[in-house]
Write a protein that binds this DNA or RNA. Sequence first.
DNA 1: GTAGGGTTAG
Length: 592
Amino acid sequence: MITRLNSRLHCFINLTGNFITTSFLLPSSSRLGFEFTPHSTSLASLLHSTSFSNNGDPPLSRYQKVTSLDHAFNLFDEMIQRKSLPYVIKFNQLLNAVTKMKHFSSCLDLFKQMCVIGVPFSKYSMNIAIKCCCQMSRTNDGFALLGCCFRRAVVPNVFIFSTLLDGLIHEDRIIEAERLFKKLIKHKLCEPDVVMYSTMIKGLCKFGNNDIAIGLLRLMDESGCKPNVVIYSTIIDSLCKDKLIEDASKLFNEMVFAKGIQPDVITYNSLIHGLCNLCRWDEVSKLLKEMEDLRISPDLHTFSILVDALCKEGRVDEAEAVIDIMVERRVVPDIVTYNTLIDGYCLRGEMTKARTLFDSLTSKGFVPNVVTYSSLLNGYCKSLKIEEAMHLFHEITRKGLKPDIVSYGAMLQGLFRVGRCGAARKFFDGMRAQGLIPDECTYGIISDGLCNNHQVEEALSLFHLVGDSKLNSNIVVYTILIEGASKCGKFDIARDLFQDLTLKGLQPDVQTYTVMVSGLCGEGLLKEAKHLFRKMGESGCPPDGEMDGRRYSLDASTLSMLIDEIADGSVDRSMLKLIGKLVPKEMMDTLA
DNA sequence: GTAGGGTTAG
């Protein structure tokens, strides 16, 4: 292990060298060049200057380099108090700067003021305003602004339509997005360009339509719009997220070798992330080496992905070493990096280390966020240190943050684990009183907690009572209930649930099958267990044989049944491979 | 001279 660690670290060190310095030099020199560019003397600008002279304005960067919201408002007030208003471009630059700081609501306020004062807005300002609406999940308001465009004879262009399309996708309104996209093409309202295609492709990928996304990629190519690295990276990332690494890699090769499009750090980050999730470390190293050869330097995302993956594997020491290298290479870790490491300590139950790092964050200049707190909460709860968790939970509010469903979920899990079902109930009620809507994960925690506290009846009645599609159509919740029912001797109910989920059209996953097979074994129904295990192999579960190898395991009695099967010779190679993947690591160690 | 798209954490 030490040797492997060293070689990987050397790889990181080598590949991060040499590339950092140039990126630090670039901005200031290019800014100089920009500031001294003389103003254009075109007819358009002469016309502008008659009504909106720039009044000897400072260089443009003043509007673009706004550092805070206060700064932006002061500048805006100063602008509107002048005798003759500055160019609309300067307003747009200011609006854009506010948007970049993610103060969408304030940006809209400024936009409204502009309209009231009578600054003649352009496509640019309109697009910024529409983007603000969309980013706040108020895409309908964005469409209302589109109406204003028509009324004010501002002809919307491909930028504005792309922004609206993105807004619909952001709100998961994929059907409407698709309809809009098709309508734009059909009625020739605008010619889709590479950005619009990439937005639509992102939407398709978001809803699991990788094949259609690839279809659209082919279509755009045929219709003369050349795909670029963003388009390919979007689909590659989606394939990686679906664990379809081979398909992703095929597309990557097509992009590089057939199309001659150079990958960038984002393309590599997606691939590395996908491989990390599958624990395919050798290939991760290979990609890092490839990046080095192409002189693509790993960035904050790359390092965060590696830190996270190492932590999830329990290799926290290596994760720490990666952070040291980051610091050495002047890639500054952010709160995400540290949260990931805190989570890594918590996963291993190293709460002292987690706490120490947490306490040191402020002096490092970081402000812990709700994710930081949730990780630590989760750690305390898993270590059954409920009082510490309670204390920390109250601290979240004291620090002016709001606990979210994940924070509540951690507390619920902890309380159930120490058998405090009543207190869990109170937390659940408190959570809803805060206006937080429980998700499948919350229901999973509650079902699991109740089952483990011998309250299977409660869990089942909750399941039937809620009648909510979230709870009733989630395979994880089904699996928890099946396990709960079969472990407390209610195998009939487990069997009913299993049938029920199939009837609902849900696809049992490896965990569901494993739990059912174990249940059947426990009931002595070996024949049926064998039958179901075979069905699991035949049903193509797990798809494409790609599993992350962390979450699934077989218990001893099921394994012993399977060993009989293997001895019989009635298990084929692919099944053998699957069994291998289902055997927990600890059990392998014991056998060895 | 200004506006739209892809990667990270609980």
